[in-house]
Simulated assay, not measured.
Amino acid sequence: MIVRLVKMEFKPEEIENFKILFDEVKEHIRKFEGCEFLELLNGTENENIFFTHSYWSSTEALEVYRNSELFKTTWAKTKVLFNAKPEAWSVEKFVTLQ
């Protein structure tokens, strides 16, 4: 399993637009083949910063999504709202405690 973390910082005046956009696409992303989990997190010290946190069945599944029309369309609408360059990491779980 691949864990994907994407940090995005938005222009203050675009935060509501991003929330609306995410609300429109979240179910489609979650139902995309290979996506096992999806959440949106908001920074506690900086409300302009959001993170998407998702689980993917494999690197290949993530790449299929990243090359999909859904991703391309969503990303095109999202990136114009940014205040800073986004950062993304693909990681594997090392230790999990529950």
Rank of each mutant, 00 (worst) to 15 (best):
F32H: 08
M8F: 04
H28E: 15
A88T: 07
Q98G: 15
I15L: 09
T74Q: 05
V91L: 15
S54K: 04
P12H: 09
E36D: 11
F10N: 00
V95R: 08
T74D: 01
K31E: 12
L38S: 07
S58I: 00
F71E: 01
I20K: 14
E13L: 05
R4E: 00
T78Y: 00
S90M: 14
I2D: 01
T96M: 11
F71K: 05
K79R: 09
E24V: 09
F10Q: 01
L70G: 03
E69A: 09
F18N: 00
K11Y: 03
A76Y: 10
E87Y: 10
Q98P: 05
S58F: 11
R4T: 01
D23M: 03
G43V: 02
F37P: 01
D23E: 07
F50V: 09
E9C: 11
P86M: 08
L5H: 06
N42A: 13
N17F: 02
V25S: 02
W75M: 08
E36K: 09
R30C: 10
P86N: 01
F50A: 00
S68I: 04
Y55L: 13
S68A: 07
K7R: 15
V6M: 09
N83G: 13
L62D: 00
T78N: 06
K19A: 05
W89Q: 07
M1I: 06
C35S: 04
F10R: 02
P86L: 03
E63D: 06
W56R: 04
K31D: 15
E92C: 04
F94K: 05
T52D: 14
W89R: 12
E47I: 14
K93F: 12
R66A: 10
L40A: 03
W56K: 00
V64Q: 05
F37N: 10
R4A: 07
I29S: 01
N46E: 11
E39S: 15
E63G: 02
R4V: 03
E39F: 04
G43I: 08
V25H: 07
E16Q: 13
F94W: 13
F94E: 02
Q98H: 07
S68H: 01
A84M: 10
K85I: 11
S54E: 08
E14V: 09
I15W: 07
W89L: 12
